[in-house]
Design a protein around this nucleic acid. Structure first.
Lengths: 154, 154
DNA sequence: CCCCAATACCGGGATATCCCACTATATCCA
DNA sequence: TGGATATAGTGGGATATCCCGGTATTGGGG
């Protein structure tokens, strides 16, 4: 069919629909999908608090998007931003006690959503799909600008 | 790895990255990915001009999102909205001459992006991926509310 | 024929997302 | 060491996206 021939549109439709599903699952925690992803990434770093740019790279988002998206979390006291004394241009993002607590509330809700999705879609199929998606998200040939940024670090 | 275990986050990251790629490709036409997808869907209907709700269903978007997203296109004279005299609650969305022209400008840019992506990702792999994504976007078990809406129509 | 539930849309409000231009800081190198 | 360049983040502006509550219209009983 001529319909759904566009790789980008297909990805975006699935992304919108999947987001509705995860947002509904996370709703009791008061977190949206993006917020849960950001808090999870910050938590994953443990003691090595990430700067805004680190989050941007890990989450495949623009730096300014990270800054923007952190505001509601900061306003609600889930994260703090403090200057990195080792490089005063950077701001380190840290979870507060309330942030860790909120994340702990959300995790079982997220896990339930994962399981519900994978029950229907197939655990193996889901892992394979994520593999493909991670490949796309990290493909430097798609966005040359970002490829250069990657090269800088190597 | 613990990282990238979330199906939703993986989908969203890939969606963001892919969108950058298609947006860059479409840039000379002045259309963004979403706008191109909307104009394409309207055009696909031919003489049977869709209402806002029809577009919402086809594009897996909220009705209010469609309405919002149509505004820049309307402002730029690419589409018109007119009351459906057969059901005065509905508004039919139609391409203007300028809209058709803009879409014609964008199509080769889109096709080049498709080919460039599929050159790297594999034509067969891309088709398979789209298949999976269409399945997710249309899965009524993920968002029960929408499932009911679907049932109404059956 | 009239009332009521359902439907189609809109307006307001919030988050999500990007780009651009700007500031502050750091780094490199002549 | 001092100035050019590069990097980290912010603020403003635009589109994208959802939900909720309200309005107009429709269609089905009674």
């Amino acid at each position: 069919m001529e319909r759904n021939r566009c790789n980008c549109a297909a990805l975006r439709k699935a992304s919108r629909h999947m987001t509705l599903f995860y947002d509904a699952a996370l709703e009791p925690s008061g977190l949206r999908s993006t917020q849960f992803a950001m808090l999870t990434e910050i938590h994953r770093r443990g003691d090595a608090a990430p700067a805004i740019g680190d989050l941007a790279e890990a989450l495949v988002m623009d730096q300014s998007t990270i800054g923007q998206n952190l505001r509601p979390l900061q306003r609600d006291g889930l994260v703090t931003l403090e200057r990195d004394e080792a490089d005063r241009r950077s701001r380190l993002v840290k979870l507060t006690r309330a942030g860790r607590s909120r994340l702990a509330d959300a995790r079982p809700l997220w896990l339930a959503a994962q399981e519900k999705f994978e029950d229907g879609f197939g655990k193996r199929a889901a892992a394979e799909l994520r593999n493909q998606l991670v490949g796309i998200a990290g493909d430097p040939s798609l966005v040359p600008e970002r490829a250069e940024l990657q090269k800088q670090k190597a």
